[in-house]
Write a protein that binds this DNA or RNA. Structure first.
Length: 282
DNA sequence: TACTAACCTGTACG
DNA sequence: ACGTACAGGTTAG
């Protein structure tokens, strides 16, 4: 059963920390997604692409009703789901998603966005679409051929070498992100963790937002805070960070608690807690 | 295995 | 104005 627009809130979905390269003009949303641009209109609901290929960027093909029914068994998630109807997980270009979250480490959303924009302007292709100019996200090969010096000009800081490493690993085919889509969570994660700059949290973001792993539940400062605040009876989290071993243990418990669509639960909880603390989405 | 410090950079706040 | 703290973490020791 395909989703109609009423089950997709474009504004809230884009403003939930999963996608960074977007612009809002005249009530329409433009999202740079790899070598393509998504244009989304809320009412009447319509999603088009620059490439003219059909893409379910908002995961319109998910059975949203079924997923909601599953994840709202949890009262806190239910509260958030009522407050944010139509909040979705996006299906992003894997390479862009990968670089986006490598860049996100120890940083904030406006800063991540700025760096990605600089990467696009410096290495991406300029295109004209709907009477506006856009820079597409650079291909893996283009970034693999860049120098640390050039990447530093995009203000990546110490992350420049990570971006280079990841781009080379992917451009060479050593790791094929499309192949990871077909794998189970554990197997895909193991491969992602081989790339320097990708730890547990970043790997989970990449898998949830671009590799079809709805059971991925990124554990960052916010979600850990959420587990402490609302689920102290189930999860014994005392610090701001957790060790690798603990991360795996907690993820296992997360699946037991929230089910196979735990990633969706995470998005609702994350959105709610960030808004509660009046954090910026841009 | 668990724990810490160091890390680039822009922005917010005093 | 100018210093300091902090941000969707990861790595090295």
């Amino acid at each position: 059963m395909p989703d109609s627009g009423i089950h997709i809130n474009i504004r809230e979905t884009i403003n939930s920390g999963q996608v960074f390269l977007w612009e809002n003009y005249d009530d329409r949303w433009f999202v740079v997604d790899g070598h393509d641009i998504i244009i989304a209109n809320q009412t009447p609901f319509e999603v088009l692409t620059f490439s003219k290929r059909s893409k379910n960027f908002f995961r319109q093909d998910d059975n949203y009703g079924k997923i909601l029914k599953e994840i709202t068994k949890d009262k806190i998630v239910k509260k958030s789901a009522i407050h944010y109807p139509g909040l979705r997980i996006t299906r992003q270009d894997p390479f862009q998603c990968c670089i986006s979250f490598i860049i996100s480490s120890n940083s904030n959303i406006p800063n991540i966005r700025m760096r990605l924009q600089k990467l696009c302007r410096k290495f991406g292709t300029k295109v004209r679409f709907q009477k506006r100019d856009f820079f597409l996200f650079p291909e893996p090969k283009r970034l693999a051929d860049a120098t640390v010096q050039e990447l530093n000009e995009c203000k990546l800081g110490y992350r420049s070498k990570y971006v280079l490493d990841a781009s080379r690993t992917i451009a060479s085919g050593e790791i094929d992100l499309e192949e990871l889509k077909k794998m189970k969570y554990d197997q895909a994660k193991e491969l992602l963790l081989e790339i320097s700059g990708i730890g547990d949290k970043v790997a989970d973001c990449i898998m949830l937002f671009s590799l079809e792993k709805l059971d991925a539940f990124p554990l960052d400062t916010w979600t850990l805070k959420i587990l402490q605040k609302y689920y102290s009876d189930i999860f014994c989290i005392d610090k701001k960070t957790i060790s690798k071993k603990r991360y795996e243990d907690v993820h296992q418990k997360i699946i037991e608690r929230f089910g196979k669509y735990a990633g969706y639960s995470q998005q609702f909880l994350y959105k709610m807690e960030r808004d509660l603390n009046e954090k910026k989405w841009l």
